[in-house]
Amino acid sequence: MRHKSWHILREEGALTLCRQTPARFDVAVRAELPLADPLRVSQQVRQDMWRAVQSTRGFSPVVRIERSEGGLLVTAGGRVAGRVPSNLAAKIAAVLEDESKRQRWVRHAQRRVSSGSGLQNAQQAEKLRKCAAEFDKGSESAP
């Protein structure tokens, strides 16, 4: 079975993961997370959000990650073909506020940073810094 492609749109200081372009938020909820790989975080948030709201007819998830003072500002939601259900924002907020999910997202997005030697940690921290610097590149779409 062939899966439709996901678009990864990069702007200065932000990354947006969406199925359809242009990305549109008919419903949106925000949360803050510690600094981590924005692409990995966006994929994990999208996956958990979809599991929670997949029964919503015409829903297409969108996750936007922006750099903030203390880490990452996550905007999760998406476009809805038709009427937006009144409980949709609450369902998405429940996903973003679930502490076990938040810890898993950050752990997954930082998993390359091991507890090994100081040199390994420095190298992994540099990789994470470079990944965060990718925010500042132009827009691209994944195949």
Rank of each mutant, 00 (worst) to 15 (best):
E140F: 11
R129I: 08
Q47G: 13
S42P: 13
F135V: 09
A76I: 04
L15W: 03
F59I: 03
R107L: 10
E32D: 15
G71R: 04
W50H: 00
S100V: 08
G58F: 01
I65F: 10
G118K: 08
A76H: 01
K127R: 15
R24Y: 01
S5M: 10
T75V: 05
A31P: 02
F135K: 07
S86Q: 11
S55W: 09
G70F: 09
L72G: 08
K130D: 12
A36W: 04
D37V: 01
C18F: 02
E66T: 12
L9F: 10
S60I: 05
G116E: 03
K101M: 13
G138T: 07
L128Y: 07
A122Q: 14
W105T: 14
A133H: 08
S139C: 13
V95W: 04
A23Q: 05
K137G: 05
K91A: 00
S114Y: 10
E126Y: 13
K91N: 02
R83L: 00
M49A: 04
R102V: 10
V80I: 03
K4S: 15
L73E: 11
R79H: 05
N121H: 11
I8F: 15
A132H: 11
A109R: 10
V53T: 00
A52Q: 08
L72P: 08
C18Y: 04
G77V: 04
P143Y: 14
D37W: 04
R30K: 13
E32L: 11
F135L: 15
R111I: 12
R112L: 11
E134W: 13
Q124A: 15
R111G: 12
G71K: 02
I8R: 15
R10G: 07
V53I: 00
F25M: 01
A31K: 12
E126H: 14
H3R: 15
V106D: 09
V53R: 03
W105Q: 08
S117A: 09
K130M: 11
E97R: 15
R10T: 12
C18N: 04
R19S: 14
A109E: 08
R102C: 07
H3C: 09
E134N: 09
A23G: 03
S86R: 12
A28E: 02
Q103Y: 06
G58T: 04
N87T: 07
V84I: 06
V113H: 10
S68I: 07
T75H: 04
I8P: 01
V41Y: 03
V74E: 02
L96N: 12
S117F: 05
D136V: 06
S117H: 06
R111F: 14
P22E: 13
